[in-house]
Amino acid sequence: MIVRLIVRRLIFLVFVLFGLSLITFGLSHVVPGDPARLMAGPRASKTAVAKIREKYGLDDPLPQQYANYIAGLTRGDLGTSFTTRRPVSEDLKRYLPATLELGLVAFVLSSVIGVPLGVISSVRRDKLPDHIARFVSISGLALPVFWLAIMAQFVFFGKLGWLPDGARLPIGTDPPPQVTGLYTIDSLIAGDWGLFRLSVLHLLMPSVVLAYGSLAVVTRMVRGGMLEVLNQDYIRTARAKGISARSVILGHALKNALLPTVTSLGLEIGLLLSGAFLVEIVFSWPGIGRYAVDAIQRLDYNATMATTLVIALIFVLMNLFVDILYLFLDPRISYS
């Protein structure tokens, strides 16, 4: 049954990606703007512009260009970026790990803080911890992540000088030899503690800022789930049997309360991905979000389309993973 679910979802995924490529391709090619001219620079001669246009097939009719693009995609060829002049797939390999590192740390932070906060808030309902948790969960969804980023920069870099204002490492510092592309892990593998410390320092502010939004979602879901579960009969039975409060809450209640939280993982991933776009810009974090925004602003079709497709792919796959996870966690659910 799980196999059937996966097959169905993968077929849907192909349709989604096809539709998306069509939308982004169609839209990005009707824009009034000439990428060839942009690439050649303002003082380029007409022939130079024409040469570039020919080189990248910009003169072909649109359906032809699209067919070429799709044919390339099936070979894993995402085209060449007009701005960096490297294959887009190479660019993605370079920038994706930075976003991954940022997103992973933010995800871990929001779970490690959010789950206990939600639990405490539900157990000490309407007391101080609950007020704090509810403040976090309401403000987290209302705070513009880019504003929070600038304010954090202002306080911790501008005023206090505790943390660097952005980037993954100080200018002029060589990154660790690439194994995973995550600087914290790579520097540990290389055994370079100084570099590890530096990369953690640089990671701290962007990841905490990014985590705040999903922290709100996690806290809210856990609190809601716990409140629902805590009122149920089997919890009262467990209490009546004389099981310690700690064991009832952590052993009996939390397990079931976490189930609905798993479904919100999809929402969380979406928040983290779109938040990364804005956070990366403010902190000059060389990730895929900043790359995409640069590409968008320079009419770099290939890079724009590739990044949107890759992000869609990540998002859809993660959601599929969440659905399967849910299937394992809750045997009552069946997707038919």
Binding site: V31, I269, S274, I311, F315, N319
Partner: peptide, 24 residues
């Protein structure tokens, strides 16, 4: 509904960025 789902298969803000970027 399948047509609708296609739009939901994407983080909202990023879809908006992609569309807005293409349009102008």
């Amino acid at each position: 509904m399948r047509f609708t789902d296609m739009f939901l298969a994407f983080p909202a803000l990023i879809l908006a960025i992609a569309i807005a970027a293409s349009l102008g």
